[in-house]
Amino acid sequence: MSIKQISVFLENVPGALYAMTGVLAQNKIDMRAFTLAEASDFGIARIIVDDLYKTTTVLKDAGYVHSISDVLGVVIPDSPGGLNRVLQALTDAQVNVEYMYVFLGHKTTGSAYMIFKVADIAAASAALAARGIRTIEQEELEKL
């Protein structure tokens, strides 16, 4: 019901992000979603990748501090009101959304994907399932 997100600590200095994407590029890791959160002197790069184990290994070897968290990959019909329906379900279930960002699927499926970091992942999954809103699984990531 959930997928794994890798959060990487980055210093807020020129080239820090480039250095990290360089490590991923060298190891031929395909990023499926990416977002950056920043504070004044540091940032957190949040990524969804096709190969979780390989990515965490190469990041660790390159000296990056990272953590893994469970997030929801929500399939949203690419039509007006799609996101609104998802948020409606979460609101009704009283689930707090901590942050969310867009997922870059590279097949034309007529659907958009969004990553949701929520306070209660079980409650959120149940609420979405009850409304017929699909969430993706870790194994699906490679195919998207």
Binding site: S7, V65, S67
Partner: peptide, 8 residues
Amino acid sequence: MTPEMFTD
């Protein structure tokens, strides 16, 4: 920053 201190 250390792995122990780091959180998302």
